[in-house]
């Protein structure tokens, strides 16, 4: 069976004021339908670049990306993208932001209100439908950012550190809600995070990247049965051993990235 997504030897170089920066170096990765894969790696290793390539905002310098065996060229509405910044439209209320993808597709207003309402309730935003983004907390905006992508049910959903700026408690609540939503819809998810605990708690497999130029360092399966209880997950022995393995691999990458900070590698 062909995988839903396959990334085959993809590299990406940027030209910045005459200097070539290799952001990604021959990345190969395959995702099955319904899989939840998390990607961890040091800052600047090209995680966001990888998602921008998959969604079609950038095109690879080498290699190719296939969706169900067909090469991706340009933007594909089967792929949803939850960006690092929440990017809600500030002139739209919460519910108007959540339903915008359906509006674009010409779905009947009553139907889209209904579907938005269901998702808003599921992530505990009931009562805030009429609020503008600046009247919501960071965590609330991030929830809205996620459900406005889920609402049009793209087959593949890319998430770029969606819980990055949030405090630890809110993160766990949102992780739990995300797993609930994923369980119900069984879409395929690529989720970027810099938090190892989060990576393990959510994923079927954790992809570890090296510091720049980003390569795939390892892919580790997470042998924790589902459904998972993210509030208690750190107590499970399987979690602890996975965490130990991954941390041992991440450690040298993090210090490498640190020593390069601010400079461009020759």
């Amino acid at each position: 069976m062909t995988p839903l997504l396959s990334v085959e030897g993809v590299s990406k170089e940027f030209l910045v004021r005459g200097k070539r920066i290799v952001a990604l170096d021959s990345i190969t990765l395959a995702l099955e339908q319904g899989e939840f894969v998390t990607v961890v790696g040091p800052s600047g290793c090209g995680k966001s670049t990888l998602l921008n390539l998959i969604v079609g905002l950038l095109s690879p310098s080498a290699g190719r990306i296939l969706l169900r065996g067909r090469p991706i060229n340009g933007i594909n509405p089967e792929i949803g993208y939850v960006t690092q910044k929440d990017n809600l439209l500030p002139w739209r209320t919460l519910v108007q932001n959540v339903e915008i993808a359906l509006e674009i597709r010409g779905v009947d207003p009553r139907e889209r209100r209904r579907r938005a309402g269901v998702l808003i309730q599921q992530v505990g935003l009931g009562g805030f439908e009429g609020h503008y983004p600046h009247e919501l907390s960071g965590g609330m905006r991030q929830r809205a950012n996620i459900i406005r992508t889920l609402i049009y049910e793209p087959q593949l959903i890319l998430m770029d550190e969606p819980f990055g700026p949030l405090d630890a408690q809110t993160r766990i609540v949102l992780q739990d809600q995300l797993l609930g939503l994923w369980n119900a819809a069984r879409k395929t998810i690529i989720f970027i995070t810099h938090d190892l605990v989060e990576a393990i708690a959510l994923a079927d497999r954790v992809v570890m990247m090296t510091s720049r130029p980003g390569k795939v360092k390892s892919v580790t399966g997470v042998p924790i049965p589902r459904p998972r209880d993210v509030y208690q997950i750190h107590e499970s022995p399987a979690f602890r051993s996975t965490h130990e393995t991954l941390w041992r691999e991440l450690r040298p990458e993090v210090s490498l990235a640190e020593s390069w900070r601010g400079g461009i590698r020759p």
Partner: peptide, 25 residues
């Protein structure tokens, strides 16, 4: 903001829809 336009583009919006729903407001 280019990112706001990209959000809609990724959702499958046409250039016209991006004009009406992002650029004008």
């Amino acid at each position: 903001d280019l990112e706001l336009k990209n959000v809609l583009r990724i959702m499958g919006a046409t250039e016209r829809q991006i004009l009406v729903k992002v650029t004008i407001p």
